[in-house]
Structures are given as C-alpha cells and as structure tokens.
Design a protein around this nucleic acid. Structure first.
Length: 655
RNA sequence: GCCGGCGUAGCUCAGUCGGUAGAGCAACUGAUUUGUAAUCAGUGGGUCGUGGGUUCGAUUCCUGCCGCCGGCACCA
C-alpha cells in the first residue's frame, strides 16, 4: 500500500499510508487534537473523521473553534433531537432536519401536536443521548435495501426520499447513532453523540409543508438553537431578548407612532408622531428623486379591471386584488357593471401617462415617480406588524428607456439607493440577483440581453450580489435589496426589475432617431419599497432612538421651576421658527422626572431651563444617552440644532 | 391560506376548581416650586375579543367566528 502526503494548514506535510482516516491523522498529530476533533476538511470538503483518505490532499482537522463547526454541531443536534423524539414518542416519523443560520430544526410526522411543554422532556432526553456517547457511523446502502428498511419501520417519508435520491443516481448514505437508531443523511457528522456540546435549547414548534409545497401535508417542525458552549448560548438568548425590545410593533405602541386594529386589518393608523416620521422620510426621498432627474405623478386608486387584464396582472393576481363598485344598483346599471380594482401597483397607470402624446427618443430616459398607495389582499398568515400589510405606499418609479440605457440607468439607480440607505444608517445591504424563472415571457435572447445589462450595471457600481436562481419576475430579471429586522428576519425593500413585457402589452412606444416606432424598456424600481416596511425597519434599526433629523419630537424644553416659564416659551418659539419639532414641558414635576420621562420617550435633545438660564438667556442641553450637560446661549443652540436637524438631502445641496 | 399557541383596564400581568374582577405603571385632579432617569396624596377606567350552547347563573366549561403571535406557503 503506497503512502500519501497530507498538507496541514500550517504548511507542514505528513506522509501516511493510503486509506488513513481523519481520526488517525488527528491522533498522530496529538492526543489533544484527537479528542477535540469533530470532522476533517479534505481539500476544503468537510468529511467524517472515519472516512479513509485515499490521495494526497491538504487537510484540516475541524474542532469546536473552526469556522463551520457550528453548522456541524447544529446538524448533529437535529439528529440527536430526532432520536430523542422518536424514543419518547414512538410512532413519530422523521423527515428532514438541517442546520439553520443560528440553530437547527427537524420536521416530524405525528398525529398529536407537539407543544412547548414537551421541550423540557425532549431536551433532557437529548442530554441523555449525548451522555451515552453513541458512536455515529456512516454506511452506504443499496436503494432497495433502504426503501425496504424504512418502509418496514413505517418511515414512509424517508422511503419516498430514498427513491428520489436513487432516481438521481446518488449514493444512499445512512448514519447509525448507536445500535438502535439511524437516519438517512448526507453527513458529515461528529464521530459520536458525546462530542455534541450540551449548549442547545429547543425554541418553538411550527407547521411546515412536506418538501416546502403547500399542496402537501403539514409536518410538525421543532426549532432549536445550538452553540459550542453555554456562554454562547446564553449570549444568543440575551440577543433575542434585546431584539424583542426593538420590535417595531412594541416601539410603535410605546412611542405612540401608529396602531393597527381589527376593523382595518393590514392597514396602518398613523398617529401624529408616526406620521411626522413618515413625512420626513417621504420629503427626504422626494428631494433625492428631484435631484436625480425624476418627475413625480399621481395616478388613480380605482382603475377598471380591463387595464389589469391587459397588463396581465388580473390573470395572475386577481385573487389578491380588491375590487370596488358603487353601492347603488342604479349607478351600477348606468356604469355598465364595470368592475373597478383598487390598484395593487402603479406601473399600468404610469404607462397610461407615458402614452399621452407622442414620445420621442429625446424624452428618454423618462423617470416617472409616484408615492403610490396600493392595496393587495395579502394572505392572513403573511401579515406582520407594519412590515407586511394590505395597504401600503411605495416610493415607486418607472424608468422608460432604451435598451442601451439599461446599464447606465441601473448603475445610477444603485448609486442613488446605496446613498439613501447610507443616509438612514444601513451599510450592510444584501443584494440578490434574481434571474430568469422557468415560466417567463420574452425570448431567451431578450433575457440574455436583460440579464447582461443588469450584470454590467452591478459590476459598474461594484456591488456584490447573491444569485437567486430562477426567482426573477416573469417579465424580467431583478435586483432585490434586502434589509434585516431586529429579530433576524429579512425583508426586501429596494428592487429593480427590467421589463420588456409591459410596454408591449400596454402598447407603449416612442419615435426613434430613425423616425420609426419602438418599444421602450421599463425599469420598475423602488428604494425604500413600502414606506410602512421601511419605517418598521428604521424603527428597529435605531431602536426608536432616531437621529435628530428623523426624530418626531426633536427637542423638549423642560422647566425646572415656573420662574422660567416665560423664557422657556421664548426658547420653544425660537426653535420652532427655526423649523425644529419642539415640545414645551411646563408641567409641575421635578426636573429629574422630566428628564426620565422624555429620555424614555427617546427624545434626542432635552433643554432644561431654570432661573439661572432665564436670567442668562442660556439653556442646559442634554443629549439622549448621555448624562452630560452643556450650557449654551440660546442663539448657539438654535444654530447648532438647526444645522444638525437638516435632512441629508438638504445638507448635500448646501441649503 | 395551513399548523400550533394566545386574547382580562392604555401597557405589563394576576384572578375566578362557574356566583359579573384586581395590582403596578400610565392617565386625570390636588398639594408641592423642585437643578438633570420616578415628590406625595387622591380619582376615574374593564359587556374579561365576539356570536352561540350547557347552566338558576358563564369572564371561567363546550363550540363557531374574528384578531394577534410563531413558523410554513405566498409576496406583481
């Protein structure tokens, strides 16, 4: 048997007999490493320690501290949980159980529902299985053998899955965990259950469709989290608690920004403070659009269904649309029973404006923006605070352009978007590139061109994207700009979609240089996406403690004794005239109470005024989050706060 | 929409093994004139999500519906 050469991460080489296992290599390097070893990476590919290595390779022993170790641990935790559940609840079937971003889940089939009360029992059994230190051994089975075995023990889902894998011609690998339990799995796995750190916790039960298809039966999914040690677990649980405090639904109520109620499910009641925030955001984005060559329009809320039929939306989304008609039978008769749809989007209306009069190539690109209110009948289970609602407003725009202009328009848009996100404090933006879906309109050649144009633009801006294969719109590829909420959920905010289809269906055209008629391309684009969603994320991003320009109440002027009342009024007037949003607190409370009260309300600036300030015509300024005080002349405060409270869209133009 | 959980005052929650409910905070009123994260006292506030059933009697038990929460599916 010939020897092979293994290269360690530090560059050292080891010559070992062909067929040496990862465990043996680890042991040869040192007993400490052998004990800590969880898996081995062979030429970058993670494998079981028990696998024989047959060729020269660069290797790395994976321990708890290795990057990627958590994924291994979580995957094993899923299996240990599955074993625990099957031991405790005989007759339960197992299906899939992968690692997730911060934990794992396993999907079970069982008539009785699991409840969180079961968790303690399952966790205890999991710890017991870890204590048993069961060896985890990989085997390769013949498909027939596996199908027969799983059918024999009543695991019909596993049997179905084996058949699927076999059809693809892939090997069937099975992992034994002890001598009584096994699971179909790709691996890799830890060498034994004893290697699994006991820093895991079951978190929630939920339904999930078999193989992610809503036509299939619903399974019971148990979610857990797992970490390499107790401290990491505790930190994680602590982070979750912190995140809960930032939840926009909670802050929206506590800060009196908005509310939702049963009589208008999925629609937001904006309170004065929330609406101030909303208008601040809207005015900011309006400035940005005006500065980058957009024109703003406003289109009807109620539009005859024939337009939606023409655009193709009726066919695909009719069930998700609201319709309206006059209450009076007489009116309905005279109107010819026409069905009006409450607009679910703005694009067909924008095309109607584009179609008024003859457009020349000189008019392109035409960037048409609208703060358009849309209504969609979102499935009840999808509603979530103000992040996913049935009535929302987008900072929507459609850029009518030539095919040659797609790249430059996209690049300009990406730059605008990133600048806007930066102004709101978002620097980590995930951008997904969604390419052609299986069912689509338009020729492959058109798709090639659209995708290439989009790719060029992204490259021009130096944007990193994640490919989201097959997730494009039916009419064109798209970019999705994704922000994350406090609880770790991702939300699409910005988007850019290249569309060759709607201009055709709605017959938009322009006269080209050649004097002939041509179809424009439409770029559907939004930066914030829905104001509702974006503001929800904004609330969580700042945990309600907004920078001065966004804060609904920017300054509280609080008196210490009522000797200062008259002067405090003057301060409030001065600042209000300067455009600052002020609240005057002359209430009969101690200054300590007022400071606490307004600090909890997350007001960025508190100006305290007592007898001394009134005499000297100064204020004592205190910023949120700091207990330091600064004594300033009234005129200085006015100038300073006014400058600081300018929206970034104003400061950039030097106003 | 599907699976599971939940629904008592503005908020957070207690309570009733079936006899129409209570605390803290908030709010309001009064006293206090106060120097940077809670001054004291008093007052008001709930068809116990909603419809039906069982019962002498339901907020409590059963059930339909609505909403919310967590996932899944969906997201033009």
């Amino acid at each position: 048997m010939a020897d092979i050469t293994l290269t360690l991460p530090d560059g050292a080489e080891r010559v070992v007999p062909r067929g040496t296992t990862g465990a043996e290599v680890a042991a040869a390097i040192g007993p400490g490493l052998a004990k800590a070893a969880l898996a081995i990476r062979v030429d970058g590919e993670e494998q079981d320690l028990s696998r024989a290595i047959d060729d020269d390779a660069s290797i790395e022993i994976v321990t708890v501290r290795s990057p990627g170790a958590l994924e291994l641990i979580r995957h094993d935790a899923a299996h240990v949980m599955a074993q625990a559940v099957q031991e405790l609840y005989p007759g339960t079937q197992i299906t899939f159980g992968p690692a997730t971003e911060d934990g794992f889940y396993y999907d079970f089939v069982r008539d009785e529902p699991f409840s969180p009360e079961d968790f303690e029992r399952i966790e205890a059994r999991m710890r017991e299985i870890v204590a048993r230190d069961l060896p985890i051994v990989r085997e390769e089975w013949e498909p027939e053998q596996a199908i027969e075995y799983f059918k024999g023990i009543g695991e019909t889902y596993k049997a179905e899955w084996v058949a699927e894998i076999a059809k693809r011609g892939e090997p069937i690998s099975v992992y034994r965990q002890g001598d009584k339990w096994l699971d179909l799995c790709l691996g890799p796995h830890l060498p034994s259950t004893g290697k699994l750190p006991k820093a895991f916790k079951l978190m929630k039960v939920a339904g999930a469709y078999w193989r992610g298809d809503s036509r299939n039966e619903m399974l019971q999914r148990i979610y857990g989290t797992a970490w390499s040690n107790e401290k990491e677990l505790a930190d994680y649980l602590h982070r979750l608690e912190e995140a809960e405090r930032r939840d926009h639904r909670r802050l929206g109520r506590e800060m009196d920004l908005f509310h939702l109620q049963e009589e208008a499910v999925g629609s937001v009641f904006w309170h004065p403070k929330g609406w101030t925030l909303y208008l601040t955001v809207e005015n900011y984005i309006r400035d940005r659009l005006a500065a980058t060559g957009y024109v703003e329009v406003k289109t009807p809320m109620l539009v005859d269904r024939v337009l939606w039929e023409q655009s193709g939306h009726w066919e695909k989304f009719a069930d998700a649309m609201f319709t309206a008609h006059p209450r009076s039978a007489e009116a309905r008769k005279s109107e010819g029973e026409r069905v009006l749809a409450i607009k679910p989007m703005n694009c067909p209306c924008h095309v109607q404006i584009f179609r008024q009069g003859i457009k020349s190539y000189r008019d392109l690109p035409l960037r048409m923006a609208e703060f358009g209110s849309c209504h969609r009948f979102e499935p009840s289970g999808a509603l979530h605070g103000i992040m996913r609602v049935r009535a929302f407003t987008q900072d929507d725009a459609h850029i009518f352009c030539t095919e040659d202009q797609i790249t430059s328009e996209t690049a300009a848009f990406c730059e605008l978007l990133l600048g806007v996100y930066r102004d709101f404090g978002f620097t980590d933006v995930v951008v997904k590139f969604s390419d052609r879906p299986a069912t689509r309109a338009g020729s492959d050649e058109i798709w090639d061109r659209a995708e290439a144009a989009l790719r060029d633009a992204v490259a021009a801006v130096g944007l990193e994207t994640i490919l989201n294969p097959g997730e494009g719109a039916f009419y064109g590829p798209k970019l999705e700009f994704v922000l994350r909420d406090a609880i770790g959920r991702d939300w699409q905010c910005g988007t850019l979609q290249v569309d060759f289809v709607l201009p055709e269906r709605l017959d938009a055209s322009y006269v080209g240089e050649d004097g002939g008629r041509h179809r424009p391309v439409m770029l559907h684009r939004a930066i914030l996406g829905s104001f509702e969603r974006f503001i929800g994320i904004l609330i969580e991003q700042y945990a309600g403690a907004f920078p001065l320009w966004l804060a609904p109440v920017q300054v509280v002027i609080a008196t210490i004794t009522n000797d200062g009342d008259a002067y405090a009024r003057e301060v409030a007037d001065t600042l209000s005239v300067a455009g600052l949003r002020c609240v005057l607190d002359l209430s009969n409370e101690k200054i300590g109470y007022k400071v606490r009260h307004h600090s909890l309300a997350k007001v960025p600036v508190i100006l305290a005024i007592g007898r001394r300030e009134a005499e000297e015509r100064t204020v004592a300024m205190r910023r949120l989050g700091s207990s330091a005080q600064e004594s300033l002349a009234l005129e200085d405060v006015r100038a300073r706060l006014k400058a600081e409270a300018q929206a970034p869209s104003k400061t950039a133009t030097g106003e």
